[in-house]
Design a protein around this nucleic acid. Structure first.
Length: 424
RNA sequence: AGAGAGUUGGCGGAGUGGUCGAACGCGGCGGUCUUGAAAACCGUUGUACCGCGAGGUACCGGGGGUUCGAAUCCCUCACUCUCUGCCA
């Protein structure tokens, strides 16, 4: 969430940023934060004064008791009753303000970075670059959901039987291709200086709040109700939360972690032709890269992460493009997001395979993730993450783009990982 | 899952109702000494909120209660450890 100070000290910039995102009540929200914070401060001061007086009297009583002046002590005791009452009232009032303030802050999204283009929807995203030639396929080319049936490498019916729609079973070369991609991605991350971690796949509520999945977005996650645990929608959640409530030394920065995990999404959204096959699943695999960065370095880090994802796509010989998300399409917690889309020839459409974002201090604020600067003052850090990469649509693109009468050819770099060069 | 023990500052570890934000040790930082380092010695060393400042307030696993006053007593939840049980 945004820091109160950020909003209070830069009200115009905050309103401008939120309005760019399409919020119509930005001014109202900012006013509310400022007002609530003011009330909070005033109540806090009153409460502190009351408690100070009360502490003072208690100390006197203690002293008198020690000296055996019982009677005088009793006289002072009487005075404390009032203070006790008013401190109780003030505490409740204060808590009320704090809760309202927090609730309001939770509902305010991150401010878009200045480079974020204006716009309301996906069509307004800025195409930063395109790479690679779009393949032209023979007339008999078919989409991946037919290819996986033809070669019997992914079985939706089986998954449906044991779990439900959106939980595919990978078989034979399909399973081996998955494993190959995961290993390939992890090796690339390690070569780029990321420390590999294997986090838990279930997270608690605190972690959900830390990265912004909670409150209000629990509908996107699967929940273990009686334990208050959630299946991770992305490794971003457990890996970033590794650093919740942490104060780092400046010398430790940047922190770079990578992890492979399955991801679980309820995705109650739309269904139809565009979500057929591997295009959208309830469970899928992804290698995620995360950086904890010094505020001055975070945009440099973001460019580095984007380049990392691009290079992987280039090695896989997949044509792709890079989008800079417009303000309206930007995720709630992000300040700047690049999407990478791979061209799927048989579907003749672009498929999102990676999303690389800088959250600036938005997550750090919730996480209480800080560092000590040169003056030994604690400052908020910046968090970033990106997919490098998500598997299913990569698999879809490889299958569709590389299909021929002889089968599906594997990209050169992948063959040492798959152990085969064609699916037929 | 059952029984018992525990949870204090970066770490170890005192503290069972009254200047306790918390002794002491280690570690960290600054300094003295030294050509430099080590040792020794001296000083310093949690976080947040309010306040221009002096200073004040809160926090001893979380939440609640008793009391004029709680790290210390009571209730509750979570977690950790040991033994037993089960198990990849």
């Amino acid at each position: 969430m945004l820091a109160v100070a950020t909003i209070a000290n830069n009200p115009e910039a905050t309103v401008r940023g939120l309005t760019k995102r399409g919020l119509t009540d930005a001014q109202y929200l900012v006013n509310q934060v400022v007002a609530l914070n003011q009330s909070r401060k005033e109540t806090q001061t009153q409460l502190d004064e009351t408690l100070a007086e009360s502490n003072n009297l208690s100390r006197q009583i203690g002293q008198l008791m020690k000296e055996g002046k019982r009677k005088e002590a009793e006289a002072i005791k009487v005075k404390t009753a009032d203070l006790k009452n008013s401190s109780k009232t003030l505490t409740e009032t204060l808590r009320g303000y704090e809760e309202q303030l927090q609730k309001t802050l939770y509902n305010i999204p991150n401010l878009p970075h200045e480079s974020v283009p204006e716009g309301k929807r996906a069509e307004d995203n800025e195409i930063v670059l395109e790479h690679g030639r779009l393949p032209t396929l023979p007339d008999e080319a078919i989409p991946h959901w037919e290819l996986i049936e033809k070669y019997d490498i992914v079985d939706f019916a089986l998954g449906n039987k044991i779990s439900g729609a959106g939980f595919p079973v990978y078989k034979g070369k399909g399973a081996r291709l998955q494993r190959a991609l995961v290993n390939f991605f992890l090796d690339k991350a390690r070569e780029a200086g990321y420390l590999e971690v294997q986090p838990p796949l279930l997270i608690n509520e605190d972690s959900g709040y830390g990265t912004g999945q909670l409150p209000d977005k629990e509908g996107q996650m699967y929940e273990i109700v009686d334990q208050k645990l959630f299946l991770i929608p992305t490794a971003e959640v457990p890996i970033t939360n590794l650093y919740r409530d942490v104060i780092l030394r400046e010398a430790d920065l940047p922190l770079k972690n990578a992890g492979y995990t399955p991801c679980f999404r309820r995705e109650a959204g739309s269904w139809g032709a565009h979500v057929r096959g591997l295009n959208r699943l309830h469970q899928f695999d992804k290698v995620e890269i995360v950086q904890i960065s010094h505020p001055d370095q975070s945009y440099k880090a973001l460019e580095g992460m984007l380049l990392h994802a691009r290079q992987i796509l280039e090695q896989l010989e997949l044509p792709y493009r890079v989008l800079r998300l417009c303000a309206g399409d930007l995720g709630f917690t992000a300040a700047l997001t690049y999407d990478l889309e791979v061209y799927s020839a048989a579907q003749q459409k672009w498929l999102e395979v990676s999303s690389v974002s800088n959250f600036e201090t938005y997550q750090a604020n919730r996480l209480k993730l800080r560092y000590k600067d040169g003056n030994n003052k604690t400052q908020m850090l910046h968090t970033l993450n990106g997919s490098a990469l998500a598997l299913p649509r990569i698999v879809a693109a490889i299958l569709e783009n590389n299909q021929s009468a002889d089968g599906v050819k594997m990209p050169e770099v992948l063959i040492p990982y798959t152990g085969f060069d064609v699916i037929n």
